[in-house]
Each structure stands twice: as structure tokens, then as C-alpha cells.
Design a protein around this nucleic acid. Structure first.
Lengths: 335, 335
DNA sequence: CTGAAAGCGCTAACAC
DNA sequence: GTGTTAGCGCTTTCAG
């Protein structure tokens, strides 16, 4: 029995030899370059198929100094926000023959810098970053590389180039208006993760500012250090209520927390919204299945990914764009 | 004002010139090759920092014919399973200076083939695939490339090389035993996505087979075409119960469906588990926050990613491994 | 310990 | 339309 010897890579040269044409002709056919005769194309395709040739992108990218890769750095995979954004990004990239190289920063600026450095080494054709607060090191690196950059999630702040997201300060203010307009006068707030994403802090501050402005200041808030989850939401609400029993409504940093809080209310005889109104953020699917549907501020995460990828592909270096995707209040019964 | 001219890439040659050493010495320092004098290293590091040099991985990988990339193909991002696996993968990769290039197949074998072809063009050092049912085209391509492959999720079946996952047939049988041992005699089943992941079908079939074996055959099941979600779980349960009112228990393809079903019960006065027992699959966080905690079969998704990445890195081509991570029943109050 | 030469696989730029 | 030449930026020989 012959040992399964590791096959040598089939190169463009091999195809050229078999097809009886020059290297560059093979290259042109593979890249669908213009001005190729049908005869030549057929010979090349035939030979390539016979040999099982697959182009080596490494070589092509080295030569042209630009790859079909897009570097994507997100902070986390632990709630459905970023996976959905990634899904949106990939849907556009794959339709355009591009692939995503992924970096996960864990909300750590140093890790973000490392991830960007690592990913830029592949000469990606573009970079998608999360948030507008990129460190100086990141900004310097991408400028040196001279590639398009799109920052997702936020629009409050200054983008390196383009951005797709929402205004979290607008969302925070809108949450305040929403609750006050419905007659709630003693609102609280619950967050998590120690507010590591700056945008959640911005949202809370805008929420508090608008409440104060309208004469119904934030009664109390609880930011737990742990990662957002339903159990943590229940815990945070219990803790918040013990310190501030007079609250009539609570705005949450996200729906995971809000759903957990809703469960806490159900388990403890707190009627929602009569005794306590709950307002979520993100509008994820589960909120519409709970016995009391969660009222929430919906964001478009898949679409955010789609728009970010499009912006990268259609990039016009001279006119960076900021796309505000906005948000909307979902129907629910928890407010 | 000078126009912000796109800076030329700083190459290793530039560093060598500034440091007054040869190209190869810079290369050696950057790669931390052995046998470098401190003096030389210092000069090189100094020059590299001054110039803001970052290595071009494209060139290095082209030369060595192996990159620091790992190709990862998953079917979906729309539930928390694969994001958690990816998180686990990335945690190991980033600790080893590797990056993931991502492909999303949407459970479509053709897309999977395309994604693999696309990703292999980058000469990744390894490939992580989802499921054991890779198409012949995929198998051929990875064998031609001669790189390590790890398949995740399943262990029932034949791996190309190595695999990390669980036995879904064992899980299905265990679910049957679990319900029967607790005295339920009229079980049903709910799935979704038209059972596109083959492993969910395997689980259901093993569930039904064990039930039949023990004389309490599956009373009825409902596989909805839509993507799994809590709302769909509620809908599926309602539909299943209308066709099979006598059920005393239901096993779900995943916790998203089960949680939705739980909500349906709460909203419709169906007492869980007295009137109907619910058994989930995956053991996601939200199930432990619901007023009635969900009883579920827990899997280790992050760890699956970790083990897969480790297997790839420590690959021994001569002894492929299959790692069964097993599953466990979580405490809950829904059975 | 350091350097010189050669070439990875592909593609711009220029011939013809 | 097709081919020739040269070289992308790095690293593997092989010298010294």
C-alpha cells in the first residue's frame, strides 16, 4: 500500500504547462480578466479542473498588495448582538467574494490593538471596528495602512472614517421620554459588565440627563460587574428594588437583563407594568415570546453589519459617511 | 496643506537599512529565531519601532506555505451555540498568535464547499468544520491541502480526521430514559429549521427509538420549518398539543424552543411539569432564570471550541482523535 | 552568530 | 489576444 504522500501544491505554472499556454494566461482566465479568447479559456479551465487547481491567494495578494480579506474586530460573542452583526457582515462579504478575519477584543483596548495589528498583517482590503473610541495606536495603524475603516454600533462621537450605528444618547433620551410620557415618575436603571461598552454608559447618562431635565430625576441605578444575562438581570433588579423600593419603572441596558428582571417580577408577585414597568434595549426575539411581552428599544443588528460591509466595499475615501440606522420602540406589555 | 499621501508600506528591507544589518537578520529578530545577539536584536527592534514596521504576513506565509490563519466554517450565527464555540476557538487561537478566517454556510452544503474553497486559498494552518457530514468535495480539498481538520458538534459518524463533540444519539436516548424514569409515558417532540442540522434529526430518532424500545412510543412530534426561536417554540407546542392533547411531556431540539414553550404554558394555564413536562437541549443561561427553571441537557460549547482549536494546534497527523465532551442534565423544575 | 542568494506563486507592465 | 520580464516581502538554504 502506497503511503498517502502529501501532494505538492498545484500551481498556476502546472496548469499553464498542461494547457500549453503561458502562466499569465492562466492568471487572466482565473481572474476573469477581459480580452480572453474562448479557445484559450476552455483549454485553461480544462487543465485547471483536471489538476484540481486552486489559486493561492497569498501570492496574488502579496503581488497586488490587497487581499480579499476584511478584518473584523468585535468585543464579544456572548450575547446575540455581535453574532447578528457578523452574520450581516458575512452575508455581504461572501456575496462579493470576500472573507472575514475575526478578532475578539473582550472589551479590552490592549487586546483590540493586538487584534488590529495581527489582522492588518494580512493586508485586508478593509477593517470593521466596534465603537468609536478606538485607541490612538489603532488609528495610527489603519492610517498607515491606508485602508477603509468602518466603525459600527455608535454614531455619537468621531469616526476614523465611516460609521454605522445609532445614537445611544438619543436612545437614552428617548427612553426617558417614553417612560415619562406614559406617566412613570420614578425611574431606575440596570446595567451590567461594569458598563465596559462606553455606549451603554452614554445611554444611561442621556437617560438620566433627560429625566432630570424633565423634573423626574433618576431614582437609582445598579450596574453589576458580571456579564449581561437573564439571571444577572433578575439579581440586579432585586438588588435595585431593595435599595429603591419606590421605583415605578426601570430601563435596562439590554433585553437579556430585562427578561431576567421580568422573570424576577413574575416569581415575586410584582405585576408588570402595574407595579413596575420594564423597558429593554435591543429588541431580541425572546422578548416577544414572554408571557408579558417585553417593551424594548429595537435596533437593527443584521442590517448594521450589512451596511458596514457595503460601506467598506463601496468606499469613497474622500467622503466618509456616517449612517444612523435609528431605533424604534417595540410593542410590548411591560410598560 | 500637503495632501495625506498614502504612505508606502514599511518593509523589512527598510528596517534593515536603518538598522544597518541584513534583511535576514531583521527577519530572524521579528520571528524570535534563536541565536541572535542582544546587540543585533536591540538595533533591529529600535529601527522597527522608529519606522512603525509591521511584518507582512502575506509574504511570510507565501514563502513558508503555511499561515497563521485557521479557517472556521459554521452553519449559522443565529443562536448562541456557534458564537460560543467561536469564542472558545478564538480564545485558544489568539493565545497562540493565530487568527480565524470565518465562513458561514447557512446549513447549505454548496455554500460550505464554496466557503472551504475560498478559505483554503489562504493556506490556513488548519480547518474547523461543523458536523461530520462533510461533502466529498470538501474532503477532497482538505486532503489535497494536507492540513489538519477538526470537525465539531458530532461524534456519531466518521470524521475526516479529528472530531470534538457529543453523541447526539446518546443524548436522544438519554432524554427518553430521563422522561420515562420520571414516570412520563406519553412524550412528544418539537424541532425547527426543518431539522437542517442532521444531528438534531439523529437526536430525535434516537429519542423515538429508545421510547419505542421501552414500550412508550413517541406520541407525536412537530418540526417547524422556521429558524429556532422562543416564539416558534410557543407556536410549535400549541400546534403539537392541538394534535396530540394527551401528551404529558415534550423534548425540544433546543432551549430556545423550550423556553418559548414554557411561556406558552404559563400564558395558557398549563402547569409545568404537572400537566406537561418540558425538557430542553443545550442548557443556555436563560433557562435558569425562568420562573420555572428549565430542565435541559447541557452541552459545553465554549469548551468544544477550545478543544477543537487545541486539537488543531497539537495535531498529530498519524493519530486523529475523537473527543466526546458528553452532556449532563441540568437541574430544573420543568420535568 | 550573521549574511548572500534564490525563490515561494502570482500579477502589473510592457512587448508583440 | 497572448507572452516575457520582473518583482511583491519574506524566509529557506548554504556560506562564512
Amino acid at each position: 500500500m502506497t503511503s498517502p504522500k502529501r501532494t505538492e501544491r498545484v500551481t498556476l505554472k502546472d496548469v499553464a504547462r498542461v494547457a500549453g499556454v503561458s502562466d499569465i494566461s492562466v492568471s487572466r482566465v482565473m481572474r476573469r480578466a477581459p480580452n480572453i479568447s474562448d479557445g484559450l479559456r476552455d483549454k485553461v479551465i480544462q487543465a485547471a479542473n483536471d489538476l484540481g487547481y486552486t489559486p493561492n491567494r497569498l501570492a496574488g495578494a502579496l503581488k497586488t498588495a490587497n487581499s480579499n480579506l476584511v478584518a473584523v474586530v468585535v468585543p464579544s460573542m456572548s450575547n446575540e448582538v455581535f453574532p447578528e452583526v457578523l452574520d450581516g457582515i458575512d452575508s455581504v462579504l461572501s456575496a462579493n467574494g470576500l472573507s472575514a478575519v475575526l478578532g475578539i477584543s473582550k472589551y479590552d483596548p490592549d487586546r483590540e490593538v493586538e487584534a488590529v495589528r495581527e489582522l492588518l498583517a494580512w493586508s485586508p482590503m478593509g477593517l470593521i471596528l466596534t465603537g468609536l473610541n478606538a485607541s490612538a495606536a489603532v488609528t495610527r495603524m489603519v492610517e498607515a495602512q491606508g485602508i477603509p475603516v468602518v466603525q459600527i454600533m455608535d454614531t455619537d462621537g468621531t469616526a476614523i472614517q465611516s460609521a454605522v450605528g445609532i445614537s445611544h444618547s438619543a436612545a437614552g433620551a428617548a427612553a426617558a421620554d417614553f417612560l415619562l410620557d406614559r406617566g412613570y415618575g420614578a425611574p431606575g436603571y440596570v446595567g451590567a459588565w461594569g458598563e465596559r461598552p462606553a455606549r451603554s454608559r452614554i445611554r444611561r447618562e442621556a437617560f438620566a440627563a433627560r429625566l432630570a431635565e424633565r423634573g423626574a430625576p433618576l431614582q437609582g441605578y445598579k450596574i453589576l460587574p458580571g456579564q449581561s444575562s437573564a439571571p444577572l438581570g433578575a439579581e440586579a433588579l432585586a438588588s435595585l428594588l431593595s435599595e429603591h423600593p419606590g421605583l415605578d419603572s426601570v430601563f435596562f441596558a439590554n433585553d437579556d437583563l430585562a427578561v431576567g428582571a421580568l422573570f424576577h417580577c413574575m416569581a415575586n408577585g410584582i405585576r408588570v407594568p402595574q407595579d413596575l414597568a420594564l423597558l429593554g434595549f435591543n429588541g431580541i426575539a425572546i422578548g416577544s415570546a414572554t408571557p408579558t411581552k417585553l417593551t424594548s428599544i429595537s435596533t437593527q443588528r443584521f442590517r448594521m453589519g450589512v451596511e458596514a460591509a457595503k460601506l467598506l466595499i463601496d468606499n469613497d475615501p474622500d467622503s466618509p459617511k456616517t449612517v444612523d440606522l435609528g431605533f424604534s420602540f417595540t410593542d410590548g406589555a411591560s410598560v
